[in-house]
């Protein structure tokens, strides 16, 4: 008898991404990177982005260790960033952030609704306020990488 909110948090999709994260490891080719740090639990990750000449995201990858939620979030994020412009990536990030904190969140204009639909599996963090940061850290780190703030480490203590 597992608490339904726990079931909601640890859905099969999340466990699967957590066990075998996609795009995990430092790629040969990338144009920017940033480090993310969750000082509360000691987790760290690095996000690598390969930007095309037009500024869109050609490839995304990450490296690091963390809880199932942060690993799944990073893994799913790298899958869905491919081919997006910076503006699209950031719109998706803001919509995802809203989804993690509010039941009534609406997708921002320009956010990929299909991607957001897939990210719904992470909405279970709403019932676990301290875990929201685990879900959003990879996205904060991605944003720092694409906006050229890779020199500074991103922390969740914002």
């Amino acid at each position: 008898m597992i608490d339904p909110e726990l079931r909601q948090l640890y859905q099969e999709v999340i466990l699967d991404h957590g066990r075998s994260p996609r795009n995990c490891g430092k790629p040969d080719q990338f144009t920017c990177e940033a480090q993310g740090n969750n000082p509360m639990c000691g987790d760290r990750l690095t996000v690598y982005i390969d930007l095309a000449d037009d500024g869109s995201i050609r490839e995304a990858a990450f490296e690091g260790r963390g809880c199932a939620i942060s690993m799944a979030s990073a893994s799913m994020m790298t899958e869905m960033l491919k081919g997006k412009s910076r503006a699209e990536a950031e719109a998706l990030f803001r919509s995802f952030q809203a989804l993690c904190t509010s039941d009534a969140a609406e997708a921002e204009d320009g956010a990929d609704v299909d991607a957001l639909e897939r990210l719904q599996v992470l909405a279970g963090v709403r019932a676990f306020p301290v875990r929201v940061k685990c879900a959003t850290l990879p996205w904060h780190t991605m944003q720092a990488a694409v906006s050229g703030q890779g020199g500074q480490e991103v922390t969740t203590e914002l």
């Binding site: 639990c41 987790d43 963390g66 809880c67 199932a68 676990f128």
Partner: peptide, 12 residues
């Protein structure tokens, strides 16, 4: 299982 996940589960 990551310690963070263990903490959340036993908290429940």
């Amino acid at each position: 299982a990551h310690p963070h996940d263990i903490g959340t589960i036993v908290d429940r």
